[in-house]
Each structure stands twice: as structure tokens, then as C-alpha cells.
């Protein structure tokens, strides 16, 4: 390994609204995702959490009619500037999806996918990078003897950790996760949560979750979103240190939501 620089980077969302065609799904967002911290986005279904998250790495560009107003930046780079290299952006902002989506390939090839895209490293280096990523996602012990087996043979929880390994293997600056545990059993969920807590040392982590305990356990900052009944657009109700949000919420809707009385 060569001379190195720290990688985690701040993401900032300023005065942003997100549209599907004429429908404003999310409005007036101002957020700051800190490096080396986990930011949890919570809020009831359909309030625009995924839309918010998916606009951060421009994966929502693929949705017909999707449109952004406002400014989103990664460090000092404007994510939606016409000059922005979207491919490079997505290399720097990794994503883990709600449902584990391993490729129909071997476990090894899944993790190696991002690493071999442009300048495939030497075999020995590649093997080491894959191992590092699998160790980091706490999967190495379980798969080290079957790296050549199809990834689809793994359990759901293992598959999700494999997807995390795949996402961090290329060492992005930011890691986005959209309800990464919603398809997992409690044990796997705990493993992924421990993993998230570890990952924040290296990355800026943003996670959407429906699980209040998860937000409370795994995050440092919590963003509470809700839908404005008037125009059905999602917006931010409250942002704060996770401890404050859960013990001393300022907004009655947050209070009701985190105590499980609605949502």
C-alpha cells in the first residue's frame, strides 16, 4: 500500500426539492452528512426517504421524469453540475440496496466486480483486496472456504453483507444504505449493525431505516422526515444528535414516531 489520504467526505443537501414528473415527492431539504458518523433517516413509508437517498449518488437519474431542484454536493463538488462525471461520483458514493442483490456469479467475483472495472489489479492484489473487504464486512470466516461458490447460495443476511463488502471494496467516500436490514433476521441485523458502527470510522454513512432501535443503536445523527399532508411532499421535521432525538424530541411528530405511536 502506498501513501494514503483519509477518505470520508461530507455530503451537503441545500434547499433541495425532488420531483417525479410534476409531483414533488420531497421538498425544502437542508442536510449535512458528516464524515465518520452514521446519519439515520427515519420516517413513515412514502415520505421520500429512498428518493432522498437515491438522489445522493444520482442513481435516480435512471427514473424517467425524475428532477432535482437545489444543490447537493460531495465535499465541494456539485453533484448535479453538468460537468460532474456521474460514473466517478458513483464510484465515490457507494450504495447498498434494500434487497440483497448479488450478481449471479461466485462470491469472489461479486466482491471483485467493482475492483476489476477499469484497471484490474494483479491477481495477488485483487485477492488481498477481496479478502480485506470480506473481513471488513464480517463475512470472511463464513465464506473463505467457498469463494468460488455462487453468491446466490448464501443466506439473505450473508448476501447483504456480501453486498456491503462489494460496496466497500472499492473504498468509496460515502456509503448509502436503504433499509439494508429489512429483509434480514435479527441475528443478521445485529451483525450488519455492528458492521455499520465499524464502517463509520472509515466512511460517511447514511442509512434509511424503519427500525427505531436500529436508528437508536447504530446512528449518531437522526433525520426525521414526514409527509406534509397539505401537498403530500416529504420534508424534514427534525434533525439532531440521535440521543436527543430519542430522549428529548423537539417536535411532537418526532415524539409520536419514535415512541411508536404513529408511522
Amino acid at each position: 500500500m502506498d501513501a494514503s489520504t483519509p477518505s470520508a467526505t461530507t455530503m451537503t443537501v441545500k434547499d433541495t426539492s425532488l420531483f417525479y414528473g410534476g409531483f414533488r415527492a420531497v421538498k425544502d431539504i437542508n442536510l449535512h452528512f458528516r464524515p465518520h458518523a452514521v446519519t439515520a433517516i427515519i420516517g413513515s413509508s412514502g415520505c421520500g426517504k429512498s428518493t432522498m437517498l437515491r438522489s445522493l449518488n444520482r442513481i435516480n437519474d435512471r427514473v424517467n421524469g425524475f428532477r432535482v431542484e437545489g444543490t447537493i454536493s460531495l465535499g465541494d463538488q456539485d453533484v448535479y453540475a453538468p460537468t460532474t462525471d456521474v460514473v466517478d461520483l458513483r464510484r465515490r458514493v457507494g450504495m447498498v440496496f434494500q434487497r440483497p442483490n448479488p450478481f449471479p456469479m461466485s462470491i469472489f467475483d461479486n466482491v471483485a466486480f467493482g475492483l476489476t472495472l477499469y484497471a484490474p489489479p494483479k491477481r495477488a492484489d485483487l485477492e488481498m483486496m477481496v479478502e480485506t473487504a470480506l473481513r471488513a464486512s464480517a463475512l470472511w470466516g463464513e465464506v473463505k472456504d467457498k469463494l468460488r461458490r455462487p453468491a446466490t447460495e448464501l443466506s439473505g443476511g450473508q448476501q447483504q453483507r456480501l453486498c456491503i463488502a462489494r460496496a466497500i471494496a472499492t473504498r468509496p467516500d460515502v456509503l448509502l444504505m436503504d433499509e439494508p436490514c429489512s429483509a434480514l433476521d435479527p441475528i443478521s441485523t445485529l451483525k450488519v449493525e455492528e458492521l455499520i458502527a465499524e464502517l463509520k470510522r472509515s466512511y460517511t454513512v447514511v442509512i434509511v431505516t424503519h427500525n427505531m432501535q436500529q436508528a437508536a443503536r447504530a446512528s449518531d445523527v437522526t433525520v426525521m422526515m414526514n409527509m406534509d399532508e397539505a401537498d403530500r411532499a416529504g420534508h424534514v421535521i427534525e434533525v439532531g444528535a440521535t440521543d436527543d432525538i430519542f430522549t428529548n424530541p423537539q417536535h411532537p411528530q418526532t415524539e409520536a414516531y419514535v415512541s411508536g405511536r404513529f408511522g
Binding site: 502506498d2 494514503s4 477518505s7 473481513r135 466497500i168 470510522r201 466512511y203
Partner: peptide, 12 residues
């Protein structure tokens, strides 16, 4: 592992 993942390999 943490160290490796927390840093960018500049040459790479």
C-alpha cells in the same frame, strides 16, 4: 482492515 479501508491508496 480498518486502517486499510479508512484510507485512499493514492497509487491505486
Amino acid at each position: 482492515t480498518r486502517e486499510i479501508l479508512a484510507t485512499k491508496d493514492v497509487a491505486w
